[in-house]
Write a protein that binds this DNA or RNA. Structure first.
Lengths: 351, 351
DNA sequence: TTGTAAGCGTTATCAC
DNA sequence: GTGATAACGCTTACAA
């Protein structure tokens, strides 16, 4: 069995309280007893039982992180950043996967497992803003993302509209005027897709350009395969376009692949820009221009806010809203002006 | 404050023990009292305090998973699979990142945090087989990977040698004879690199072909950038080659990129094959042929073995070794026979 | 400066 | 069938 405070106390010939004082750095201890206790601790290899401490203190030193799935690179990189941010503060992280399933997300928020963590960082996907009230939970909660804005909890998010507008403006600056968007979600009002498309529209309108519905392509899932499929569908319509704005990097990478397979050159014929700045986007061929929407800052802020809530005693501060900074990352896929001579760019617009 | 067994007992007018019995499904309870208790539980929204239960039982229902970093796709996908496997069994997972740092790995194994988990699944990278004895820890431990084979703990790994040989044989079958390997590690005896290269050598020797040291290219890190850099270095040497075996998919994807950038066609001029079967390998351009080395099976087996150890009472069974099955996944990058007419394939071998 | 004892919320032992 | 009561290992008033 593991050694306990009691074992150490016996060996050091002091009371259990004194050992506890030493372990917890209580200052007023005679040096002689302190060293005796430390020797006993070393001799026995004593380690405090964190479960017992957790029971007594009502805090475990563990926070939960709930994301759709780690095999989506964005969430893997987010989880990485959250774990690092927590670790810097001596906290460990328990991870839950929701698969973006609404029922699972609901279960998770009320699961007895929450009893084992001091709070939760939650990136919902299945739940929407209409479910905000369901997040009135009895423990510290930080909500991430673009699905729920009105929950009675702290919220850390990115500047989706502004960032998407910046990406679109950059395409316009490269001389692109027929900018396709891939990954739209039917009937969505909040959510990453809706907000980013809002930014896209704003940038076009700002430039006095029409928003052509034929260029807004839907795709519920945001995997590589969907990016490729959606672009193939777009090519089949014959609608001309000279840029693709993938609503995330994965879509954009899939799009590049489909374009190349169809003999369309990136960026000579079609510029491509994504959103998220995944690690791999730097190494695609061509390298992908994208938006760094502040993932690391979001992770760090979320952990900080959560720990502040956990430490909170007495009256609770009202929910806080934080928006991380973003920046446009220019890489090869954004290209210069269109090459008007290439056959792809000479096709006629549809009737 | 959260409600306790005691609160429920008062409301249901029974003893705390009876409530506990109901919660834990003890069979011999009068139906009338049982329903009364269940009603009280529902009325109060009672949830058992898992920390208290953990203290009492000596088990928390949480296992640890230690990997180098989640932003490496392989480990993200592994963590995903481990979490799913644990979840199927009602267990949650706490994740630690080591960055492959030896000291950090050592700290982690003896950290007080282990007190909060019932056992650990550990994928070492900084530690080597010479450190095996350091893994004689006092809690259930399952070691993953190719770094440590002789630890006094269960070990789940993949068939590196056989799988690498299979990949190499397939390249030979496609008519490739000058197969470069990228990602070798200087002086390594165990480890993914060494074992996979052993398989590569075996397949060549089996085919009666020489092993050309000039075709074995080193790279400590296995990121996309390294794959690209290594291949550029190889191209600069002027040594002819007609295939690249990336020791993992990320290297192989980086290699494809560098080849294409240099005007070398994949697979017409150079076949490429990777190792790991990452999700994204299916969507590269061209899609990447690779080895599925049994990641999901490894995750499930690791969780199963760990839980068996946790449940173990009395004498401990000796360490167990498990090797997952693998399979070769053939995609576009492997190609057919070399195109002898392309300029790249007509270059002269170096003196 | 150090010791005693209560209690965190469970489960388990044993009476009744 | 059900109820007291004693741990599990720790922190913390409160004493000394």
């Amino acid at each position: 069995m593991a050694t306990t405070l009691h074992d150490v106390a016996v060996l050091a010939k002091v009371s259990i309280k004194t050992v506890s004082n030493v372990v917890n750095g209580y200052p007023y201890i005679k040096d002689s007893t302190k060293t005796r206790v430390l020797e006993a601790i070393a001799a026995l290899g004593y380690q405090p039982n964190l479960t017992a401490r957790g029971l007594r203190l009502g805090r475990t030193g563990v926070i939960g992180l709930a994301v759709p799935e780690l095999r989506l690179s964005y969430f893997a990189e987010l989880a990485d950043a959250v774990i690092r941010a927590a670790d810097r503060r001596g906290i460990s992280v328990q991870i839950e996967q929701t698969n973006g399933d609404r029922d699972r997300e609901l279960d998770l928020v009320t699961s007895p497992r929450r009893q084992l963590t001091d709070g939760l960082i939650f990136s919902p996907l299945g739940l929407g803003n209409e479910d905000a009230a369901l997040l009135a939970v009895g423990y510290p909660l930080v909500v991430l993302g673009e699905r729920i804005f009105d929950a009675p909890a702290d919220h850390v998010t990115m500047r989706n509209v502004e960032a998407a507008a910046a990406a679109t403006r950059r395409l316009l600056a490269a001389g692109r005027t027929r900018i396709a968007v891939i990954g739209a979600h039917e009937g969505e009002v909040y959510g990453s897709a809706a907000l980013r498309i809002r930014g896209y529209r704003e940038a076009l309108q700002e430039a006095g350009l029409p928003v052509d519905p034929a260029l807004i392509r839907h795709s519920d899932m945001w995997h590589r395969a969907n990016g490729a499929t959606t672009v193939r569908g777009l090519l089949e319509t014959g609608v001309p376009f000279d840029a693709v704005f993938g609503l995330n990097d994965t879509l954009a990478l899939g799009a590049i692949r489909a374009l190349q397979a169809a003999g369309v050159r990136v960026p000579e014929d079609v510029s491509v820009v994504g959103f998220d700045n995944l690690d791999e986007s730097e190494y695609s061929h061509p390298s992908l221009s994208t938006i760094d929407a502040g993932r690391d800052e979001i992770a760090d802020t979320a952990v900080r806010l959560l720990l502040e809530r956990i430490a909170e005693t007495g009256p609770k501060a009202p929910p806080r809203r934080v928006e991380a900074d973003f920046r446009l990352i220019e890489r090869e896929s954004i290209g210069a002006a269109a090459d008007a001579d290439h056959p792809f760019n000479r096709q006629d617009p549809p009737a």
